[in-house]
């Protein structure tokens, strides 16, 4: 009876550790989540993990959050818990994942507010800003893979969205919805 009660502290510690040790977010986080929940804890199989990744890519929101929510629910379900207790599992792992960032970012904001305006800080930032621009450009380049661009129709959609965003300043949300509608119609 209630064997799964011990899973809550375990989920908390596991996702707290993942939250501390993943820099760079998203994809960097996936491999750590995988080693923790598939290899170390044996909470799910490789193929179940692959499913989570696929679902995360298809649903909105950060991948790390998606994984934590899904894992928390599934692990409790597998252990025989009911819906409500499984939802609590989702909450535990998601909360644990976000908590370290919350503490560290708040400390960084305080440091930022104190430092900004000082000339040395500005010097360092003047080097960092172009690097961030390069990072974002890289994010776009990395996504140009056959899975995202299987045929000429996807390139046409890419060009249309690029033009609408650049020249018409169309809202990103509108473009995502239109992209979904177009995909449904042309494929």
């Amino acid at each position: 009876m209630m064997d799964y009660i011990l899973l809550y502290p375990e989920l908390f510690v596991t996702f707290f550790v993942i939250g501390i040790f993943t820099f760079g977010g998203g994809y960097a986080m996936l491999s750590l989540i995988q080693t923790q929940i598939v290899v170390s804890h044996g909470w799910m199989s490789q193929s179940m993990f692959t499913d989570i990744v696929a679902i995360s890519q298809m649903t909105p929101g950060p991948i790390g959050i998606n994984c934590a929510t899904y894992t928390g629910y599934t692990v409790l379900q597998e252990a025989g818990a009911g819906h409500l207790m499984s939802i609590l599992g989702s909450f535990t792992s998601t909360f644990a994942l976000v908590l370290p960032s919350f503490i560290i970012v708040l400390l960084l904001v305080k440091a930022y507010n104190r430092l900004s305006g000082s000339s040395r800080f500005e010097d360092v930032m003047s080097w960092l800003r172009p690097a961030v621009v390069g990072l974002i450009a890289a994010a776009a380049v990395i996504l140009i893979v056959p899975e995202n661009f299987p045929d000429w129709k996807s390139w046409a959609l890419f060009a249309a969205a690029l033009g609408a965003s650049f020249f018409l300043k169309a809202s990103p949300i509108l473009l995502i919805i239109l992209g979904g509608v177009a995909g449904f119609l042309i494929y």
């Binding site: 995202n148 890419f158 969205a161 992209g179 979904g180 449904f184």
Partner: peptide
């Protein structure tokens, strides 16, 4: 099908 249409749009949204 819906996501096949969304993916290339997301790439251009990051490029701009």
């Amino acid at each position: 099908r819906v996501f096949k249409g969304i993916r290339p749009v997301v790439v251009s949204l990051i490029a701009v």
